[in-house]
Nucleic acid binder design. Structure first.
Length: 266
DNA sequence: TCCCAGGCTTGGT
DNA sequence: ACCAAGCATGGG
């Protein structure tokens, strides 16, 4: 186990509150220091915030995957430059507000399950449902003296039935999860056409799975909030063509900033 | 074939 | 009491 640092070019607060992931939580220690509990696959880290960097402990063999998770191998400067060179003042404000935002490289299976749960739902409840799933079906993760739970793998959820999910609080989405878990991997390939054949996956969920679970940065998910932005901010006249290659990043900045303006950040 | 309206579980606010 | 990071369904 070693201690590693990440620079504050990225901002874990914005990432945690952005709604792109559901298993990254911000806490404050008694001394007032901010820290983040972060889960991905069967791994867990606790990242502590300092003046100009974050630190976290993990095995040497896991460092590369966390670096990839935080998308530190992608150079965002060209994205910033394009946005700042545009005439789009709303997007420029969104970039300034969400300084340090990144598109995480989440696990594909976790994104599939999570964004099916997210439909017609609110973020506190989405997180609650996912934690219940992890507690019941995920393998234990021991951190110091604490017991945490990994996101259940496809194998962990093989053969789940409706009654197994009765106490999870999924509502009508329970049948979607049961069906999803019965499918083979080739029926879950990371392309839109395949995803749209799965019950419970429509255009919005498919777009989120591709963006957050397969890092397709050209995906631009449009939910009710994005629709309001496209109507009210852009008057139905948003042109994404200047942002080819990072439309998903633009979308998250717009979403996060607009939710902030409407007092919806939790 | 395409479009559209109302229903759907549950719990957050 | 209303509504939430939508989707499946049936009727016109």
């Amino acid at each position: 186990m070693h201690t590693y640092q990440i620079s504050k070019n990225i901002n874990l607060h914005h990432i945690a509150k952005s709604g792109q992931c559901f298993r990254m939580n911000e806490y404050h220690s008694v001394s007032g220091q901010r820290y983040y509990d972060i889960f991905s696959r069967d791994k867990f880290i606790r990242a502590f915030e300092f003046e100009d960097h974050y630190t976290f402990d993990c095995e040497e063999s896991d460092v590369a995957s966390w670096i990839n998770y935080f998308d530190l191998n992608t150079d965002y400067r060209p994205f910033f430059d394009k946005i700042n060179a545009s005439e789009d003042h709303f997007l420029q404000s969104a970039l300034q507000f969400g300084k340090g935002m990144r598109i995480l490289n989440q696990d594909y299976w976790e994104a599939l399950v999570s964004f099916i749960i997210s439909q017609n739902n609110n973020i506190p409840r989405i997180k609650k449902i996912i934690e219940a799933l992890c507690l019941k079906f995920g393998k234990q993760i021991i951190y110091n003296t604490e017991v945490h739970h990994a996101f259940p793998t496809k194998e962990d959820l093989a053969n789940v039935a409706l009654e197994d999910l009765a106490d999870i609080g999924l509502g009508y989405r329970d049948a979607y999860i049961v069906n999803l878990c019965s499918l083979d991997w080739d029926q879950l390939k990371a392309d839109r056409e395949t995803l749209l054949k799965v019950k419970g996956i429509g255009p919005k969920v498919a777009s989120c799975v591709l963006l957050y679970g397969a890092h397709d940065l050209d995906e631009y998910p449009v939910d009710t909030w994005m629709q309001r932005i496209l109507d009210e901010v852009y008057g139905g006249d948003f042109d994404g063509s200047p942002y080819q290659g990072f439309l998903g990043f633009v979308q998250l900045l717009e979403f996060y900033y607009y939710r902030h303006l409407n007092g919806k950040l939790i």
